[in-house]
Design a protein around this nucleic acid. Structure first.
Lengths: 201, 201, 201, 201
DNA sequence: GATGAATGAGAGTTCATTCAT
DNA sequence: GATGAATGAACTCTCATTCAT
């Protein structure tokens, strides 16, 4: 089982927390602006205004940096979905689905470059999908929602992967401002879930 | 705009064609077996039983190798879709759609490791999507089919990207033998196209 | 001529003496357990339960640490030899020689790993041999004993180096529990000193 | 079991053989002149007048360089002992022993600095002593000689280690030109073997 | 006095690419 | 045309040491 690298030490002091944040910011910026090829630890440290040694004090290696960015993205996604569900409580499934799609798209549009790299260029070190607590939480949210909507909860995992694939595939490769992307994705997901087709397009 | 590297010279002689094929085979094998990290030109040349100098006679640089592999994949996909359409001439749209999905899945299942790398690990050098002749052809096929089925031909591009994303996203991350994958994807695409939901699952 | 680093300050306070001892213990433990490659000041400080800054308060640099360990070893050796000589007062030279060999072997067997590193892996910074007070004292003991035994006191220095070399060379590389090691070394030293060969082996 | 690194590829072409030789020379020179601390691969390559990449074409890592030097030393030792034995065929054991000691001392005197490092500073990577073919051959020589001289062949291994320890211990730490070193070592070895003491010194 | 976050020179190693043979 | 030895920029990571707190 492959070990996802964890931060080397949890920064407790104020200065440290600042350094970690600066490093993470710098990493995200470089990844987004220049891609994975230009992403090297020295450059990150430099851009963060931190010695390379400090970087290695908080992250055991290069991958740990990307992993941290990944984790952050996961957390934001979870929060966004929760908010979307809370905001649409009581509405019909299709509306809630659409709300979640919109939330996810908004989230991704804000850091397009970073996500492109995170999802597509990352030398995927065989992460067991859906094995970490975050993915677990995400899945539980979906299962609860599906059950509550009279849909098949067993479809939660596939629904998540599907939404993820579509968000990235359509948002990243296509013109980012493409109108109707929300409808496009919602329709596809609805199709998978067996929700009735919208009356007219 | 970044230029996709082209093979340095079209090999005409028999020996050359053999060398090029061997190099491509080796490249695919290494990518599939060991991932992009282990993919370096010296290794490819060695595995191909060819001098490193010869490799550079046919491919101007490393990326050209991956580009060639990409192109090959595109050609196979086009052929598979054409076959699926031909085999289902006269049938209702949903059947033809399903046939195409099955064809694509079959294609990908055969070279799972390679595609995983090709689609996810490749340090994507900003290829303008859908700009090459292959993608053009693919798109035309879809437009023709959509029009002929009474559906919106403008959805061809999105349909292709959607199918691609789903195929990779669901096939690669999930258990490869997952039953019902064909239905899952077909339902989603049908949902996007506005085809009526299947009666029961 | 290279200067052997000395402890930066002689610790007088109780707390300081404790810290120095802890550091020395930790250093010895790491050296013995993991070898010189794993021996770095941060690790020593951590294992000693002391801040790295404190370590540098008592030892000006890394080498001073090893030097201190070396010195400690020398002191123990001197004490052991003195004891062996005292215990065998009045006996013939060969018995006293044997007693010293046994004492030295016992001493080394107790901290095998540490000595291996101390003697073999230490990036020897050209210490002028026999220039420090400890080596002086050791040499005086031997000279006295040799003179008192009717042997050549000029051989003291060589005898000591010889004994040292044999102890480490035979004890460290060979099976540590090798029986007869005492006889082996005693015979060799006796041969050098011109003592008659033992009647039978 | 620890793997002693082997040369990466056996150089067949003239140019390559030259490069390997130059690298080995440079390595020996640096080790002898500046010690292990100053011994780094970039410096070796530079001193050899060779690109760092070339060094790594022939030696998989730093240790392999030192291992090669070690092996070379072993081969020279074996040859020297064989010559000493051949030159003294028919003479009494003590003379032959002395001849071997002289041969070994001559050998070591020629490359004092290098051997100091090779024997004492090398971050010994747990090589199982006497497990390689060279040490085997060395031991067989000694066993044959001991048997042929009416001495105990079982002492071969210890004799070799003893001779090695004494040669290095006395030659390296002491004044290199110390007169009588040959006698000193020969006497000690003779004492171990139970040969009668020399009449007078 | 004690701490430990911060530092950065420098180490080992890789690999895309060239070019003399 | 084919080869593969040679190259060196570039990368990841370590660790002795400092100094503000």
């Amino acid at each position: 089982m492959p070990d996802i690298p964890q931060p080397r030490k949890t920064p407790l002091q104020a200065r440290s927390r600042h350094a970690v944040a600066a490093i993470l910011e710098a990493a995200a910026r470089i990844l987004a602006r220049d891609g994975y090829a230009a992403f090297n630890t020295n450059r990150v440290a430099e851009e963060a205004g931190v010695g390379i040694g400090s970087l290695y004090q908080y992250f055991p290696n290069k991958q740990a940096l990307v992993a941290a960015l990944h984790r952050r993205h996961g957390e934001e996604t979870l929060a966004a979905l929760d908010r979307a569900l809370a905001d649409t409580a009581g509405q019909p499934p299709r509306e809630r689905l659409a709300a979640m799609v919109v939330a996810a798209l908004d989230l991704h549009r804000r850091e397009l470059g970073l996500h492109r790299v995170l999802e597509r260029e990352w030398p995927a070190f065989d992460e067991p999908p859906a094995s970490n607590p975050l993915d677990q939480a995400l899945r539980e949210r979906m299962e609860a929602w599906l059950a509550e909507s009279g849909l098949d909860p067993a479809k939660a995992g596939t629904l998540l992967r599907m939404a993820d694939s579509l968000t990235h595939g359509l948002l990243l490769d296509a013109d980012p401002g493409a109108a109707g992307l929300e409808h496009t994705i919602t329709d596809a997901l609805a199709g998978f879930l067996g929700l009735p087709a919208r009356p007219h397009t």
